[in-house]
Design a protein around this nucleic acid. Structure first.
Lengths: 348, 348
DNA sequence: CTTGCATTGAGGTGCGCACCTCAATATGAG
DNA sequence: CTCATATTGAGGTGCGCACCTCAATGCAAG
């Protein structure tokens, strides 16, 4: 039979009350008693019954995802996954909500984060661009004992918070390797497009990409990043111009999650060129383009996994629990037409 | 406040006892009462508190992984992941164990499975080669109300059991696509090596591989499968002979999880040829070879994910619970040197 | 009407723990 | 020694549900 707290008290030679004080880190425990209990825990292999703990605490956890308003397909996918998790966690007294706020003004974001109070929320997963204001606001959140997860965003990593997402340098390097190997021996140029190069993740992907192209594919030259600013007309213009100026363009690498605007522009302007196309994130658009062989490869991070991982982390932190690091590492996935997940999985 | 069973009874206009009968599917409930309760569940949004259920049931779950004895590195990795899960689930009254049995004789495997009794085990995850005997034994296990998961193995899918693992045809197709694109325009041959082609998963991978090579890379020819039977001498021999007979060999595709024997033979015999090498599964060996650029790409299925998925499925089945299908789909991962996970993740 | 069975309700117990109160004892400072 | 404070123990309550017993009611067949 599995030992209970009562058994533990007996084994440690103390009362149940003292065991309770030790287990829940309450005050007024002598170091001698604490040691006795700790030793007994090891000796009899005591493990708290999480079900009983949850029942007795009768606490509801409240976690919030703070996401941008501007909605590309990847964001929509992300929100759908949060919705799924929300349903799945309803049983576990865990409330999950999404707040979408404008990310353009760092002060506004910081203000929003600062207004979050510890009583209303146990943890937040924040997807916001890098800025000192936001970083400070996150630090203050942590100080108020709100668990913080830096979520899929190119922020400087905080010591006091967890990060969920891929290594963007490595993701860029992966894209570079695929591009180089897919292109083959032909010399030529690679067009690199981003929504904006202000974002840290775009910068890191670019650096990773270039590091591989330069080191391993010297016959290829990656052109300066084009920025679309999510503006269709501008994208058409700069992309068309670039393709004209560089007739020897062999490939296109889209750094941002939203590939629709730049790639539509590319397809309009490419003529009869054979371009190797690499984009980021699995979305309905990128999946269809993979199937149509208009995109050759997609570098992706699974949004469902990211959401669940963020929730597991916040929950574990709230309970002062350890977690399985290997499960929380988000993989840099390489998606081709051939290993694309089936669109709608038959309910298993 | 979240509604309890008591609230549900009130809302349904029945007693707690009847609610209990309905919720736990006990006999002696009129269809009228059942309807009233079901309606009230919808109306007030009642959800059982899993913590309370777990506590009241006070049941310990027992799950067993039935794996082969013969140990390649992937199997070792798998067993290590089961060990991790075992530790993690200790708190949740869930016992996880590994049984390694010889898989060479289907009768022996079937006998082992048949000997498992319902009282001792709630679920088994079986990794065994296809055979009618094993399939029948699994069906009988299901009939005895043991939850069965077909685990990472090339078995004909049972209707009554879950499958955890990748689509091996798609995995082979992915390998084919990578091989074709990495090789480029040069015409030549691809050597295909397997431990044995008796295994269904090897066959499916081969079919997937060939389908892509034939359809998309007509300048490439994939040679008949070489079988090593895990015999180093034999591997050396057949591989050396094949390389001699086909000087225009451009790539090697190793179908089996154990790539060490065939690839060592290849490296010994390749001379100054530049070969594109594709293998399966992330192991210390394949990871190191990726880093050394002796393997170009690895097609992998995450063993940690597979183990956790199998456990989640068995647990959900035992509780008659639904589960999130998207979480249980094992991805066909493409690993390059650039997106290889860090060897030892710093504890997060 | 009576008998037998199906259905329902009332109520109790226990799962393992968190959290609380109150009294008893120990320890240290002065 | 005396008082204040720190430490400890005993005991109770409740979390939400599963599982059990027993009595009461319903209903239908004979």
């Amino acid at each position: 039979m599995r030992p209970t707290a009562k058994d533990l008290a007996e084994a440690a030679g103390v009362s149940l009350a003292t065991v309770d004080r030790v287990l829940n880190e309450r005050p007024n425990v002598s170091s001698r008693a604490a040691r006795k209990v700790a030793e007994a825990i090891e000796r009899i292999g005591f493990v708290r019954n999480p079900a009983a703990v949850a029942l007795a605490r009768n606490k509801t956890y409240r976690f919030r995802f703070v996401l941008p308003t501007s909605g590309d397909q990847y964001l929509a996918e992300l929100i759908a996954r949060v919705g799924e998790a929300k349903e799945a966690l309803r049983a576990d007294s865990t409330e999950v909500e999404v707040a979408q706020i404008a990310m353009s003004d760092p002060h506004h974001v910081a203000k929003y984060l600062t207004a979050i109070d510890h009583d209303a929320v146990d943890g937040v997963a924040v997807m916001a661009p890098e800025s000192p204001q936001v970083r400070d606001a996150l630090v203050r959140l942590v100080e108020r004992d709100v668990k913080v997860v830096q979520f899929l965003s190119g922020q400087e990593r905080l010591e006091s918070a967890d990060y969920v997402g891929i290594d963007n340098f490595a993701a860029g390097a992966t894209a570079g390797k695929i591009a180089g190997r897919f292109i083959g021996a032909r010399p030529g140029k690679i067009m690199v497009v981003a929504e904006t190069m202000m974002a840290l993740d775009s910068i890191q992907r670019r650096l990773g990409f270039d590091s591989i192209i330069n080191a391993q594919f010297p016959h290829l030259q990656s052109l300066p990043s084009l920025e679309t600013y999510a503006d269709e007309k501008r994208a058409d213009l700069v992309i068309q111009r670039t393709l004209q100026h560089h007739p020897d363009t062999l490939a296109v690498y889209v750094l941002s999650a939203e590939a629709r605007v730049p790639l539509t522009a590319v397809w309009n302007a490419q003529g009869d060129r054979d371009l190797t196309v690499i984009a980021h994130e699995h979305t309905p658009f990128s999946a269809q383009a993979l199937r149509d062989e208009r995109i050759d490869a997609v570098i992706a991070q699974d949004p469902g996994h990211a959401v669940r991982s963020a929730l597991r982390i916040m929950r574990a932190r709230a309970d002062h629990r350890e977690l399985l690091a290997s499960q929380e590492r988000i993989r840099i996935e390489v998606l081709l037409k051939e290993n694309l997940p089936a669109p709608k999985a038959a309910g298993l």
